[in-house]
Design a protein around this nucleic acid. Structure first.
Ligand SMILES: Nc1ccn([C@H]2C[C@H](O)[C@@H](COP(=O)(O)OP(=O)(O)OP(=O)(O)O)O2)c(=O)n1
Ligand SMILES: [Mg+2]
Length: 1121
DNA sequence: ATCCTCCCCTAC
DNA sequence: TAAGGTAGGGGAGGAT
């Protein structure tokens, strides 16, 4: 019973480890379900690796029985101990079982899977045909499934739970799931199936015993209904009784809809019940989570960045989380290697020259930089030859023809050019090569590949026939085909071939859009027109040999096919690599055609064939629609194929689910409609670098060094691109509390929380030191344990070109070109249906009903639409620049003061509402709070969350924005700041520092506002330095979405950040200051702000940090890849 | 209604 | 052993 209890609790906890989601789950009902799916995705992705880890342990156990460990630094007994530990903790009752889970179960899928693997079983994510699977877990079976599973041992979840509890594998027949006799839902009470006879008889008893219901059975019910032709039978009335197992009526599969409920009503009810289940689960989950969080083996004090950098840290020796049911086992292989200090220092991000080696070998890094490179190449080539970027407008009568060119299994094809002997074999490209074998305990050779977590970048079509896919781990591929060949990367070759491809395409297209290293889009509308009209260009030569070819249907090839095949020939002869070409009237159709063309062909998807072609496709076959959208469709519409979606959903449904614009875009895509023009010139908006791999820092110093190196990397890239940036953003991945210390993927990041923080500098920079200081201060502010960091990225935005003469911002804030003034950029790139009204300002405010910016596509002619022009500086920024000193600023301040003073002190910082008031400042304080305090807040939040109206209430409880005056560094627009009189400006900055320092107090979000009645005008530089307490306070209304940056901290981190005016106000001579070394600059800053600090300290009450859980944790978005 | 910021999602 | 990077589109929700 205890075990069962633990299992249930743990299962719930999995849904709750992102605490904000536990809250959201209550407040937003089915949103919780959505989030659960989202997280499921990441876990599913990790699951294969988890199994590999298990396998790896097995192999090593055997291998170590006869072989000595080579690395002297490793303890040879440790691995065995680890394994023994696992086995002791978790009796291997499922050894030899290969288990597949069908449908919804209780405990849920994830938990069952974990239990199976933990107890020695093999878990199958799919039901293969080779008979590998020995058992299927299901709570109930649809008639269809019953037939499909007739040759398997189908048992209910109790078989797992009981076997674990008893420490032996139970006889499966006692847990058999009889078809249509429904699930034995025994986990609510601990009653067992009394006997086979009883189970059999229940089939005829169900109608009189329909006395209870639960989420699981309802869910199964719903799925069944939706499978069976969009009908939903009436579920039984929920009741609390627990006498008999719930048995779904056999009538479920029946033909007539006798439901008293309409479909949507029924589904809503189901969702309600489901959400209620989620609510109670969440609560339990949080409690369990809090109790189980102590990482086993982490005996060292918690070292936090920003507090005590000098604390010694023991080698990470976490192998298994001992707490029952709280964690996947760590990757023992990685853990052992990491236990060696020298190994860690050589092979992880702690290594001094890690970055260069890493990026050199990272395929994804290359992929990204090649993409940029090809876009640059296209842009340069077109400019040099005087051509315009983007698709041209077409005169009436000329039809748009887009071609999509894509190398077949690119990396493999390149690698096979000089390995013809492998042509007909399953081949993959990945770092792990296959020639190495290790010997197991019985002296048999075991391919190392089998347990490799090395990712497959590309696999050929032979490999694909086994189910191998790009992005899989080699170990996973190996289970699908043991004969798979692995060949190494040839990064230079990929780049060279790509350049050749683009060279060819540039010469034979009206317009070209670089998609990736192996993929491009070309517009050939005019080219084909000219060829047809005999206006020969050089292409004619290529085409000549195809003119008389005949297609397999016996028709002459169309001009499109001729050109495509000509291009393919040209590409093949220049690159010795096979590319396929898809042709269509827009980008989407061209891409779809490519899929059909592959491998080694071309295909023209004609408009008239589109509906048929699309009907059977899965929605995520459409470019731009991925896992998340597919899951949403599953949940919202109960189907994922295009024809079904078109039948079950309306455009308004899509807009409701995906948002106004995306919904419309997706809806168009379902009809095969998309942009039919290639992109014009575009300007880069961000530049950065990130590492989310092999990050295993021992202490803060290593982390800081890494950030320094990464900043230098970013600065180097900016230098190359001749760019400077004003906004620095960091993205930090921190191991999730319940994730294993070592992820299933070797040195991978595992399940993480990601944090994004950004800061705006006073001016653009590409200085590595300044980038580093800013980034590091942002990272430090997270107060994360450096040992838990799993990834760091730095990127810069608000870019300007550093090319002489180009001093204006590259990208205006709104992305709108000055040259486009007067035109509506929203419509510029989209064909507009003739006669259809454009979205107008008088549209209803109803989001779902409102016309999206994406206009609907329809048959017929398009209106001529404008191609967007090059973005330039926005009108807005010009206006802002021309303003000096901002008129009305002082009045505004005065008004603020009045409003603030009118407020009662309590309402300035309502203590009761502390947990609910979402302020930026509070978020950051939260991050700094000790875990215990956070847990208390969490509990408080949960209580509040139970209130249905909590969302609205949260806003009501919050003081009006105007009164909630908080200073943050980033909320004051620096351009505006620049326009103010200097003394005022100084005071703003001083106030910023003050607030940030004092923001631990109960009142700190508020500041007394006292605006000088006689605000100083702009003063000459000789103005006497003001070293006394500021007399004037200037604040701006809180911008809630902006993080609080401690201005003084930022200054101290970035001494170059201070402008001359800042220095003057601090009473420091600018020239003198600039000449100082950084540490003296910092000292000076501290000194000059000390007086202020001191006098205000009395006000600070560190004990009562206020915070807002919801927003803080929302930001800490849990992600996974 | 539109803009702005902080994210999530997607693709290779 | 392995090398899970990166840029852009757009939604949510507050500010203007
Ligand atoms: N998860 C992935 C996907 C792709 N790539 C790299 C290797 C691929 O060869 C190249 C091109 O990607 P494609 O999606 O075009 O896939 P392929 O070219 O390998 O196969 P095909 O285009 O025939 O489907 O990008 C990668 O490293 N990792
Ligand atoms: Mg390809």
């Amino acid at each position: 019973d205890q075990i069962t209890g633990s299992v249930g609790a743990k299962a719930d906890r999995q849904d709750a480890y992102l605490d904000s989601e536990a809250y959201e789950a209550v407040a937003f009902g089915d949103f919780a379900t959505y989030m659960r799916h989202k997280r499921q995705k990441l876990k599913v992705q990790e699951s294969a690796l988890l199994q590999e880890e298990r396998m790896l342990l097995k192999y090593q156990q055997r291998a170590l029985g006869s072989l000595a460990v080579k690395d002297a630094e490793e303890s040879s007994s440790k691995p065995l101990a680890d394994i023994a530990e696992i086995d002791k903790e978790h009796p291997q009752v499922f050894k030899g079982c290969c288990i597949y889970i069908n449908g919804l179960t209780q405990p849920p899928y994830l938990e069952l899977r974990r239990l199976i693997v933990l107890h020695g079983g093999d878990f199958m994510a799919y039901l293969d045909t080779k008979g590998t699977v020995t058992h299927i877990i299901a709570s109930s079976l649809t008639p269809k499934k019953r037939i499909e599973f007739k040759d398997y041992k189908v048992v209910n979840e109790s078989w797992i739970l009981d076997s674990i509890r008893e420490g032996r594998r139970m006889d499966w027949r006692r847990y058999r799931v009889e078809a249509e006799n429904g699930p034995e839902l025994e986990r609510w009470n601990k009653m067992k199936v009394q006997s086979k006879e009883a189970a059999k008889n229940q089939g005829s008893q169900w109608s009189s015993k329909l006395t209870r219901i639960n989420v699981t059975s309802l869910r199964a019910h719903k799925e069944l209904a939706s499978q069976d032709g969009n009908r939903l039978e009436a579920p039984v009335t929920p009741e609390k009784g627990k006498a008999d197992p719930f048995l779904p009526p056999t009538a479920l599969a029946d033909k007539n809809n006798t439901s008293p409920w309409g479909k949507s009503t029924a589904q809503k009810k189901l969702l309600d019940i489901w959400a209620r289940g989620a609510e109670s689960s969440s609560k339990v989950g949080i409690m369990i989570s809090a109790a189980a969080q102590t990482p086993v083996g982490t005996t060292q004090p918690y070292t936090v960045i920003g507090t005590n950098p000098s604390l010694p840290v023991a080698a990470a020796r976490l192998v298994v989380d001992n707490a029952p049911y709280t964690s996947h086992p760590s990757n023992g292989h990685a853990a052992r290697l990491l236990a060696s200090p020298s190994w860690r220092e050589r092979n992880t991000a702690s290594s001094g020259d890690f970055l260069s080696g890493y990026f050199e070998k990272s395929r994804l890094h290359h992929l990204s930089s090649w993409k940029m490179q090809m876009k640059d190449m296209v842009e340069d080539a077109l400019r040099e030859s005087g051509r315009v970027m983007g698709s041209p407008e077409l005169p009436k009568g000329v039809k748009r023809v887009i071609m999509h060119i894509d190398f077949d299994s690119f990396f493999v094809s390149v690698g096979l050019r000089d390995r013809p002997e492998l042509n007909a074999k399953p081949v993959v490209v990945c770092h792990r090569q296959g020639q190495m074998y290790s010997t197991d305990g019985d002296q048999r050779t075991v391919p190392v590949q089998r347990t490799s977590t090395s990712e497959i970048a590309s696999c050929n079509y032979v490999a694909r026939s086994f189910g191998i896919r790009n992005g899989m781990s080699l170990g996973q591929a190996h289970t699908k085909c043991a004969e798979v060949h692995s060949i190494p990367y040839e990064f230079d070759a990929y780049n060279n071939i790509s350049i050749q491809l683009y060279t060819i395409l540039l010469a034979h297209s009206d317009a070209i859009e670089a998609v990736s290293v192996d993929e491009a889009l070309i517009d050939v509308s005019f080219l084909l027109e000219e060829l047809r009209n005999g206006n020969v260009r050089q292409e004619a030569q290529l085409l000549e040999k195809y003119r008389h070819y005949v297609s397999s249907q016996g028709d002459s090839w169309t001009g499109e096919r001729q050109l495509a095949e000509a291009l393919r020939d040209e590409i093949r002869s220049k690159t010795r690599t096979e590319a396929s070409i898809g042709i269509g009237s827009n980008v989407l159709l061209a891409r779809l055609a490519t899929r059909k063309a592959k491998p080694g062909g071309s295909f023209h998807l004609l408009d008239k064939d589109v509906p048929t072609f699309l009907a059977d496709l899965d929605i995520d076959d459409l470019h731009g629609i991925g896992w998340s959208a597919r899951e949403a469709c599953k949940k919202e519409f109960g189907c994922v194929t295009i024809s079904e979606l078109l039948f079950k959903a309306k455009e308004s449904d899509f807009r409701r689910v995906f948002g106004r614009e995306k919904g419309a875009q997706y809806w168009n895509k379902l009809h095969g409609k998309e942009r039919d023009k290639l992109e014009g010139a575009r300007v880069r908006r961000s530049i950065g670098a990130a590492v989310n791999y092999a990050m295993r820092f021992q202490d803060q110093g290593e982390a800081e060094t890494f950030v320094q190196n990464l900043a230098a990397e970013v600065a180097g890239r900016m230098e190359k691109a001749k760019l400077a940036g004003r906004k620095v953003q960091v993205a930090v991945m921190v191991r999730a509390k319940d994730a294993p210390v070592e992820a299933p993927k070797f040195l991978g990041h595992g399940v993480c929380q990601t944090y994004n923080k950004s800061a705006k500098l006073s001016s653009s920079t590409h200085d590595p030191a300044q980038i580093k200081r800013t980034a590091w201060s942002l990272i430090k502010a997270l107060n994360a344990d450096p040992r838990e960091l799993r990834g760091i990225g730095i990127s810069l935005q608000d870019l300007t070109s550093t090319t002489p003469g180009a001093h204006l911002p590259l990208v205006p804030k709104d992305g709108q070109s000055l040259l486009m003034f007067g035109s509506d950029k929203r419509d510029a790139t989209w064909p507009v249906l003739q006669g259809e009204k454009l979205p107008s300002k008088s549209n209803t405010s109803d989001g779902a009903a409102q016309a999206p910016k994406t206009v609907r596509f329809d048959e017929g002619a398009w209106d001529e639409a404008e191609t967007p022009l090059l973005p330039g500086p926005s009108l807005v920024s010009f206006q802002r620049r021309s303003l000096s000193p901002a008129p009305g600023a002082e009045e505004e301040l005065a008004q603020l003061e009045v409003e603030y003073d009118r407020m009662e002190p309590q309402s300035r910082a309502p203590v009761d509402a502390q947990y609910m008031v979402p302020t930026q400042m509070d978020q950051d304080v939260l991050a700094e709070m000790p875990e215990t305090m956070r847990a208390q807040l969490k509990a408080a939040m949960d209580k509040k969350a139970a209130d249905k109206a909590s969302d609205a209430e949260r806003r009501r409880d919050q003081p009006p924005v105007r009164s909630d005056v908080t200073l943050t560094a980033s909320q004051i627009d620096s351009a505006t700041l620049d326009e103010l009189p200097e003394s005022l400006r100084k005071e703003i900055l001083r106030e910023l520092a003050e607030v940030s320092r004092n923001n631990l107090g109960p009142r700190p979000p508020m500041l007394p506002l006292r605006v000088a009645t006689k605000s100083p005008r702009k003063k000459p530089a000789a103005a006497s330095p003001n070293k006394t307490l500021p007399k004037h306070k200037l604040v701006s209304p809180l911008k809630k979405n902006q993080p609080v940056i401690d201005q003084v901290t930022l200054w101290i981190m970035n001494p170059d950040m201070l402008k001359d005016t800042d220095l003057r106000e601090l009473g420091v001579d600018a020239e003198y200051y600039r000449a100082l070394p950084a540490h003296l600059q910092r000292e000076l800053i501290r000194e000059q702000t000390a007086a202020v600090q001191k006098s205000k300290k009395a006000r600070a009450k560190p004990a009562s940090k206020t915070s807002d859980m919801t927003r803080a944790e929302k930001r800490a978005a849990e992600t996974q890849r």
